[in-house]
Amino acid sequence: MSFEMTKGLFKYDFTDQHAILGVPLDAEFNDIRKRYMKIARRLHSDTCSFESQADKDWANQFLSKVVNPAYNKFSKESDRKEYSLLLAAIGKRVLKEQGKMHIESAAAKELTTAKNLEEAYKTAVGKLALKQYESVEETQEAIAQISELNMVYLLRKERLGGAVGTGSSEKVTTPT
Rank of each mutant, 00 (worst) to 15 (best):
E110R: 08
E82F: 03
T139H: 01
S64Q: 12
S64E: 14
L86S: 14
K73N: 14
A124H: 06
N68M: 13
A70Q: 06
Q98E: 12
K65S: 15
A88N: 13
K109L: 11
L86F: 08
P69D: 11
E119I: 12
K92W: 07
I90M: 08
M101K: 07
N60F: 09
K96D: 15
E134Q: 14
K76D: 14
T113P: 01
A124Q: 09
Q53L: 12
L117C: 05
A124V: 05
A59T: 02
A108V: 02
G91L: 04
K96V: 13
V66K: 07
K109W: 04
Q53I: 12
L85T: 14
K109R: 11
A114V: 05
I103L: 09
S78A: 12
Q132F: 02
E104C: 03
A89D: 15
E77L: 10
E118Y: 08
Q61D: 15
L86E: 15
Y83K: 01
S64H: 11
A88R: 13
E104W: 06
I103V: 15
K65Y: 14
N116E: 14
D55S: 10
Y121G: 08
E110G: 06
K115F: 12
K96C: 09
K100I: 04
S52R: 05
R80I: 06
E51C: 00
I90H: 01
A114Q: 02
Y83D: 01
E110C: 03
K115G: 13
T123N: 11
T47M: 07
A120K: 01
L117I: 08
V125Y: 01
L86N: 14
E134N: 13
A142T: 09
K56C: 06
D55V: 04
L128G: 04
K122A: 03
K96N: 14
E104P: 00
V136R: 13
L111S: 06
E141N: 12
Y133D: 00
